[in-house]
Computed example of a mutant assay.
Amino acid sequence: MSFIYPRVIKISRQPSATGGGLQPYSGMNPAAEVDLFIDLPASIQQKSTGGRPDPGLPADAANRSLWRVFMPRSVNLPPESVLRGDIVTDETGQRYMVSAPYINSLGPNLLVERLEA
């Protein structure tokens, strides 16, 4: 942690749904997530807020809020290693779903949406 990156996050992914035909609801299950990266320094900054997200699933937050997760260049995530739909969890347990991952020369920059706790 540092003054610029005071938060600690992990990035995880839900397992892929397999099988065809009629399947039970397979919503988010934090216990089944696979950790991709842990103990990453980050800065989490609110970007905007809005109305209730569609389609109003149980994991959706009561009000939509978008955040930016910045990480230092030293994190050096491989390109395409963070995908849309991956989950970012901060040190307080707050969870965010990645909407738009972007890795550039300044470091990883993720646009995320806060999920209901």
Rank of each mutant, 00 (worst) to 15 (best):
Q46P: 05
I44H: 01
K47L: 06
L57C: 14
G85N: 05
L83F: 10
G56L: 08
P72C: 03
A100M: 09
V82H: 10
V75I: 01
V34N: 15
K10Q: 14
R52V: 10
K10G: 13
L57I: 15
G27T: 00
G51Y: 05
G51W: 06
N109P: 04
A17P: 15
S105H: 04
L22Q: 14
R95G: 05
G56W: 08
S105P: 08
V69M: 07
T89R: 13
P101F: 00
P101S: 00
I38D: 14
A59K: 12
D39A: 01
I44P: 01
I4V: 09
L40D: 13
R95Y: 12
S105L: 05
V112L: 03
Y96E: 03
R7P: 01
D90P: 06
P53S: 04
P53E: 00
L77D: 14
Y102L: 00
G21L: 08
R7S: 09
A32E: 05
G27C: 00
A32W: 05
N104A: 01
A17G: 15
R68W: 11
F70P: 03
I44M: 00
P6H: 05
M71E: 15
S2N: 01
Q94L: 04
S16E: 15
G93K: 12
G27V: 03
I9Y: 11
V82P: 06
G93Q: 11
V8S: 14
E80P: 02
V88Y: 04
A32S: 07
D35P: 07
S2W: 00
R52N: 12
G50Q: 10
G56V: 09
I87M: 04
D60V: 14
A59F: 15
L111Q: 13
A100W: 00
I4H: 03
P24C: 00
I9E: 12
D35S: 08
Q45W: 00
P101V: 02
V88A: 04
V88F: 03
L115V: 08
P53Y: 02
N109R: 12
I87Q: 06
G107D: 09
S74V: 08
V82F: 03
M28L: 15
Q23R: 13
A100F: 02
G85K: 07
E113L: 09
G20S: 05
V98S: 01
L40M: 11
D39C: 01
S105V: 03
S26Y: 09
I103G: 02
S12T: 13
L22C: 11
Y5M: 06
L22D: 14
M97Y: 12
P79L: 10
N29A: 10
S12N: 12
L66Y: 10
S16Y: 14
D90E: 06
